[in-house]
Design a protein around this nucleic acid. Structure first.
Lengths: 352, 352
DNA sequence: CTGAAAGCGCTAACAA
DNA sequence: TTGTTAGCGCTTTCAG
């Protein structure tokens, strides 16, 4: 069933007429080997089909690998909490191989805080990094430095287009918007849609959901060219203002059955309003399985959520680096667009 | 960051005033140790917070663990193919720890073939087994024997209710039917539904989708008490007969927009018909992401599929046993009801 | 019942 | 440039 009974480094050494020390040297190409021996050994390795025993290696080497994850800081119940849980999972795996995993957080609304985080990470040169980027240019600079240092880095959630990243794990944003439109409209003839958006106080911050919105609007344009799409901006920090805005919205649209969508994880802002007013005649679709969203989904104030398993993605990112570190394997695919899950009240209980 | 710098078996031995041989004996409680030493050692282990180094252990021990998976045999493109891919994934993981994984197949329509498979497995007493059961009583008997031999076994896909299984990974069947009804009806007022079923030639075989159908019918009864539900039986082996049956169905229902559902993975039988006749005015929902189903989903002859990741489930089953074998850990949950994925043409490309 | 000792396959420091 | 050697932490004889 398995190939010949385990070729060891000793077998290779013998067959090549050198000592295992030399073999080890070429294995980890840390020089000090004549080209002649090197070639010979490589050939023997090939012939014998030698592959190193990772347990022996792990046991003997006192290497201290460290993976660091750079993600936005968050409060309980927010989107990034799931990512942190993913770090947990990933850590569990990595620790088996003596690799430590740590998280460095930054304020996603504060460029300087991100810079600081990056600098800090570069400082103590980790063996690998996982990064959820929010600032394009800064990230690019950071990436360049990591690459120069030979540190593999993988993007999660979103990525910056360049060539050197080790892998990417995240949701296809445009498609998620397209899908969202399909879920919202339920193939009905629909005349008006309300998009609820977050008032962004700080300017200069790119909206991470803009691509998603584009996908959504494209679907609508293709399938319901006559449909009106309204945008309503709400303040995440001011509930009264939010309610006022939504009062306005409800006053302005005479149709009692409304179609409402939000492109980030905070559809609970809308659903909270609906619950407060006990309005049950809307179709509300949003993103991400936060506890609050989930509760409102169960209660019927949100009809569907489109979700990604950020925890699994993050764990996969850590696993990928770990495997690279200990076995020099690279992920099957560099870009891993994870699936978009459609969650409604009938399947949500089995989701997390 | 980590606890004190690695307590080894030597530290324990020293602290307990014995040799590491003795410590090892109590660690694997293979007797031959005085109660006195035993207690002492246990106490020291506790105190020092010793935990074994799995790599050293794996390196030193010449143990030969073997996991065997018992699943139905299949043709290309059929449901169980995905499970086999899961075995592949699981094997990849297990092999790192020197554990081999093999598959034993049986004919799901032939009790004897299942019995033979079980007997064969019992014969060469494996270290763990994964089983996708189709025959209740036989499985029960088999399980009893495994338990007697101290071999952990985990169910996948479906389980037989009893207490001794190590874990279960599968879809919640009833809920999947309930969900399916919601997806099929799209919250519309709907008057008639066609269930397509497989004519079962062999009697005595339990229908694995009966629970799912119950869930479906319950949803319909609750939400659309006036809706008519028709059953049409088709022959999986006879295309002409199938087409005739479906011709009949289409002749009998005057409504051009039809709601059609199938509870197993073979919704492609229906969709093939629709494509042949170029009928695009139906809403067709089925289960499982087979290549054929996927193609028909993309072409628009199937509107949605409800799916489970049988590959991941199987891999998880193998992983669970592996971890148990090498680290004596048990899965967090014994019953793992995996999520039900809703797949339509807009998210299917990112599913597998 | 217990201890001593020889590895498991690999790494890394030290000689040569 | 290369070979030698002493472990890494644990398992497993084999004496006693």
């Amino acid at each position: 069933m398995d190939t010949e009974k385990k070729v060891t480094i000793n077998d290779v050494a013998k067959a090549a007429g050198v000592s295992k020390g030399t073999v080890d040297r070429v294995l980890h190409n840390r020089g000090e080997v004549s080209e002649r021996s090197r070639a010979r050994i490589m050939q023997v390795i090939e012939q014998l089909g030698y592959s190193p025993n990772m347990h022996a290696s792990l046991l003997a080497s006192r290497k201290n690998y460290r993976i660091v994850c750079i993600i936005p800081e968050f409060h309980n119940g927010e989107f990034w909490e799931l990512t942190e849980k993913g770090i947990e999972y990933g850590r569990e795996y990595a620790e088996r191989y003596g690799i430590t995993v740590e998280a460095v957080m930054y304020d996603q609304y504060d460029l300087e805080s991100f810079q600081k985080a990056c600098a800090e990470v570069l400082e103590d040169c980790p063996s690998g990094v996982v990064i959820a980027p929010m600032f394009r240019n800064e990230t690019l600079k950071f990436a360049k430095e990591l690459h120069a240092m030979g540190v593999p880095y993988v993007y999660i959630d979103s990525k910056i287009e360049e060539d050197d990243y080790f892998a990417y794990y995240g949701m296809p944003m445009y498609q998620s918007g397209y899908l969202c439109a399909d879920i919202l409209t339920l193939e009905r003839k629909i005349e008006r849609i309300h998009i609820i958006r977050i008032e962004r106080d700080k300017r200069g911050l790119s909206d991470p959901t803009v691509t998603r919105r584009t996908g959504f609007l494209d679907y609508i344009a293709e399938h319901y060219p006559d449909c009106t799409v309204d945008n309503t901006f709400i303040d995440p920090k001011d509930k009264a203002a939010r309610f006022a805005k939504l009062d306005e919205l409800f006053a302005s649209d005479p149709d009692p059955y409304k179609y409402i969508v939000m492109f980030n994880s905070r559809v609970h802002f809308v659903a909270d309003y609906l619950r407060a007013k006990n309005i049950t005649t809307c179709r509300v679709v949003g993103f991400d399985v936060l506890d609050r969203n989930l509760a409102l989904l169960r209660e019927g104030f949100v009809q569907a959520l489109i979700a990604q398993r950020s925890d699994k993605q993050t764990a996969a990112a850590i696993t990928a680096i770990t495997d690279y570190l200990i076995m020099h394997t690279v992920p099957a695919k560099k870009d891993n667009y994870t699936h978009m899950d459609i969650i409604n009240r009938y399947n949500c209980d089995y989701y997390l």
